[in-house]
Design a binder for these strands. Structure first.
Length: 595
RNA sequence: GCGCUUGUAGCUCAGCUGGAUAGAGUAUCGGCCUCCGAAGCCGAAGGUCAUGGGUUCGACUCCCAUCAAGCGCGCCA
């Protein structure tokens, strides 16, 4: 529709240019927006206002010139000049109503569009280190990435969802060593657990599995364990040196093969847990990308060689540095440490290159806000690799606070004192969890109110929306109970009977869905969809309260049923994009039955 | 100290590319079930858009400064 209006305007401007009223070199940008209030029609453009300056004319005069030049359209009832010089377009009643027909015909593919131009992009999200279960802090990134991916897909992007698994490096060694120490405890040798080790119970669970499989094969005495290890923090030493010493001993005592076995059991179990939690959270990935494969393959060496050949690497203090400052970063970054180890940044560059080598035309990262320092260095890496930095995009997700009884839930990251994502889902349900995480703008801190998320009334926006859906389903159930049939054809032929204010509001609302989707895709903002759904649900509830859908008159009844059905389709589709379900009933006993 | 993000109704938040009278929810107050699910609806009230400058015909939106909050500034991951 917008395109049609744009064509009308373009034609008018063309004609004005041909007549010499507008200068020929003028190339106006034509934007239409939905009006905020219906007194302003359906669509408005501020074109006359933007032309005021180059034309040195009063905007209302310009608007008048354009309005006079507009040719008739079947779809446009009238055009008004309003306010400082807006052109307000009023669609014909008939045109507004057609949307119902269209939605019923297209079903849940309504709203699909080619905004993304088939661009092949990776969306990377969560990518939490596999050193423990996901906690509620990861939940927002997961919900955001999954919802955004769905929306992008609906808007014509080819989306590849990736989880980058940091299965290499010191944190993983700490994990393996922690498991090993717990294992030794289980075998009956008391161990003073390092303050920097992973302390959660899940470590003990994994240690138990190690013991079950290998018995006492990896058992050593306390004395052997701590041989030559610097003191821990609690004994006045350094916790980092302490744990590094323990790692070295673990590797030495166990030998490579046995150490790897412990390491692999730890990694596999944690990863399995993460996958289960995400599945439960309705979050999926196409690829779990292992960092290790970058090291074991040639990607890292290759990417470093490329950068070196371009002259972007240099040696200093025995380490290898990338000239990030040359590309706008604050500092140069080390890619290979003095001890020969590649840094995480080296893997990050390699992974970036790998994404584009696999043919992706864009890489989108959803990072926690604490990673914002990465943006300049990643962009710098892209420039160094001749990748257009605009093709990599980093979205920062602000933190979420859990609120219980009106107070912040305090969480310590160490000692396993965190609420896991899995617990949250058990507590409030997937639907509420997914919806709450994305209902606010991602660059806004989020207060996640647990009590609200759990509540089953209209204060809870998820329930409010789902209730609208369930109500519509209930109308159709009732119809069937009365022995009546919904006749779509009669409904479509009778749409002209839908003249109530609330019906007009619903037309407006459902027809704006595709634009909401493209806006959400363009600004990477799933919360727009959440807001839209609330409004749509509200429009429906108002309608429902003001008018009977299932009336005696067959024509009117079917027309209203068509409108209700169209509304239902969109609510269900929107909820699906956000990872929430659209229940056919809100009664808890029914929900149990359907589950 | 430098950098990034944020500051809108009592509270939680929307506000599209600079555009029309800054909007929702919640809390408060007042109404609506003989009627498809009242888990709902309708109405009232609530604002110096952190502050001060600037650009503009026009600023919540862009620029500068100040204040406040969160985060980041390693041969850590």
């Amino acid at each position: 529709m917008i395109r049609h209006l744009q064509e009308l305007l373009e034609k008018a401007v063309d004609d004005l240019q041909r007549k010499g009223i507008f200068p020929k070199e003028l190339e106006p940008q034509i934007f239409f927006e939905r009006t905020r209030s219906k007194e302003h029609g359906d669509f408005a453009t501020n074109m006359a206002l933007t032309l005021a300056k180059p034309l040195k004319k009063n905007p209302r005069e310009i608007a008048q010139l354009i309005a006079d030049e507009l040719i008739e359209s079947l779809h446009v009832a009238k055009v008004e000049i309003a306010g400082p010089g807006f052109l307000n377009f009023f669609l014909t009643e008939n045109c507004r109503r057609q949307i119902v027909k269209q939605i019923l015909k297209l079903g849940d593919s309504f709203g699909e569009n080619d905004f993304g131009n088939n661009k092949h992009v990776t969306v990377e999200y969560v990518s939490a280190n596999p050193t423990g279960p996901l906690h509620v802090g990861h939940g927002r990134g997961a919900a955001y990435g999954a919802s955004l991916s769905n929306i992008l897909e609906k808007c014509g992007y080819k989306v590849h969802r990736e989880y980058y698994v940091n299965d290499n490096g010191r944190q993983m060694d700490i994990l393996a060593t922690s498991v090993w120490l717990r294992y030794i405890e289980l075998c009956g040798n008391p161990v003073v657990f390092p303050s920097n080790g992973y302390q959660g119970d899940y470590i003990v669970d994994i240690a138990r599995k190690v013991r079950k499989k290998y018995g006492d094969k990896f058992l050593f005495t306390g004395q052997e364990l701590f041989e030559g290890v610097p003191a821990d923090e609690k004994d006045g030493g350094d916790k980092e040196l302490h744990i590094d010493g323990l790692i070295a001993n673990a590797k030495h005592l166990l030998g490579k093969e046995s150490y790897d076995k412990v390491f692999q059991i730890a990694l596999k179990n944690i990863l399995k847990g993460i996958k289960q939690d995400l599945e439960k959270f309705n979050v999926e990935f196409d690829t779990w990308f292992s960092e290790k494969q970058l090291h074991e393959g040639d990607t890292i060496d290759r990417v470093l060689k490329i950068l070196k050949d371009k002259g972007y690497l240099y040696e200093k203090d025995g380490a290898l540095w990338f000239m990030a400052t040359h590309f706008g970063d604050d500092l140069d970054r080390v890619v290979q440490r003095e001890n020969g180890q590649k840094t995480y940044f080296a893997s990050d560059i390699a992974y970036l290159m790998n994404k584009f080598e696999r043919g992706f035309e864009g890489a989108l990262y959803a990072f926690g806000a604490d990673h914002h320092g990465y943006i300049p260095r990643l962009k710098a890496a892209a420039k160094g690799l001749d990748i257009n930095p605009d093709d990599i995009e980093i979205v920062l997700i602000q933190f979420a606070n859990l609120i219980k009884d009106g107070k912040k839930v305090q969480m310590g990251t160490r000692k396993g004192l965190f609420v896991t994502l899995s617990q949250l889902v058990d507590d409030v349900g997937v639907d509420a969890a997914r919806f709450f995480y994305v209902m606010r703008s991602h660059d806004q801190h989020l207060d996640f109110d647990l009590d609200l998320a759990k509540s089953q009334n209209s204060e809870n926006p998820v329930f409010y929306i789902q209730y609208a859906h369930a109500r519509i389903c209930s109308i159709f159930d009732k119809l069937e109970q009365q022995g009546l049939q919904h006749n779509k054809e009669i409904g479509n032929a009778s749409l002209a009977l839908l003249t109530e204010d609330q019906e007009q509001d619903l037309f407006r609302s459902i027809s704006s869905y595709p634009e909401i989707l493209t806006a959400a895709a363009r600004t990477r903002s799933p919360h727009l969809v959440a807001n839209f759904l609330r409004e749509l649900a509200q429009n429906f509830h108002s309608y429902y309260n003001a008018h009977q859908v299932s009336v005696d008159d067959e024509n009117l009844r079917n027309a209203r049923l068509n409108l209700s059905k169209a509304t239902k389709i969109i609510i269900a589709d929107g909820l699906k994009l956000l990872g929430a379900s659209a229940p056919t009933s809100m009664f808890s006993e029914d929900i149990k039955q359907t589950q």
